[in-house]
Structures are given as C-alpha cells and as structure tokens.
Design a protein around this nucleic acid. Structure first.
Length: 116
DNA sequence: ATCTTGACCTAAT
DNA sequence: CATTAGGCCAAGA
C-alpha cells in the first residue's frame, strides 16, 4: 500500500535528519506522487510512529507546520533534534537532508519490488 | 457515482 | 527569473 511504504520510509529517518516528500515518493516508486506522501502524513498524524516533523518539502520549508497541534510544534521538535530553523525553514537543510537510498546502501541487493 | 481539494514536484512558457 | 499547467492517488462533500 502506498501509505504503508511512506510510513516505512519516514519511520526510518534517523535522528537529527530530515527528508523530503519527493525523495520519499521517488524511493517508493512514485516520483510524481509526492502529494500522496503529504496526504499519508496527514493520516500518520494519528499514529505517532511516523515522525512527520522530520518531513519537509524540497526546499526545506516546514510546509506542514500549520497542520500540527500548535504552530511551532514542528519547529520545536526539529530544534530539539538539533536542527536550526529560521523563518520556518531548515538552515542546514542540505546537511541534515537524508535520502532514503542511503539506508539501502547496505542492502542494494534487494530489488525495488513493489507489492501489488 | 462525480467533483474538488490536498503537508508536493517537475517541466514548460 | 516568475508564473502556469500537469500529474499523481486518496479522501471528503
């Protein structure tokens, strides 16, 4: 399922790191379905197992901060992880950016078989 | 059942 | 360089 894959990837985001919707979408085999990632995140809000606060758009802007309980909750969480936020944007975005493929650097033998 | 919207991204104009 | 258009899949009205 789409959401399941998204959750799976987002859940594997290391501490102090952030990822983008596009990267995740592309990793799960849906390069143009980045919107669904955000939608999945919305549903993930109920879960608590998915660190949605570590997911930002491609420019590192906290697009979903408005959807959290508070207004700066997402920002607070990211700052808590050691990420600097300025004007709702990730400062060291390029440095804290974590690509899903990095977690498969060890696997790289497992094909991207999508369960249908 | 159809239409609209949504935490986006990429390419074309 | 800024704006528009298209795509994707799912849920709400």
């Amino acid at each position: 399922m789409f959401f399941e894959k998204v959750y799976n990837v987002v859940r594997k985001i290391p501490f102090g790191r952030v990822s983008t919707y596009g990267a995740i979408a592309r990793h799960i085999g849906a390069p143009n379905s980045s919107r669904m990632v955000g939608w999945a995140m919305n549903a993930s809000h109920q879960k608590s197992d998915v660190p949605a606060h570590r997911v930002v758009n491609r420019i590192g802007l906290l697009s979903g901060k408005h959807h959290f309980c508070g207004t700066d909750l997402m920002k607070q969480l990211l700052e808590n992880e050691g990420i600097s936020i300025k004007n709702d944007k990730v400062i060291n975005f390029e440095k804290v950016f974590w690509d899903p493929k990095d977690m498969e650097d060890n696997i790289k033998s497992k094909p991207t078989l999508i369960d249908e």
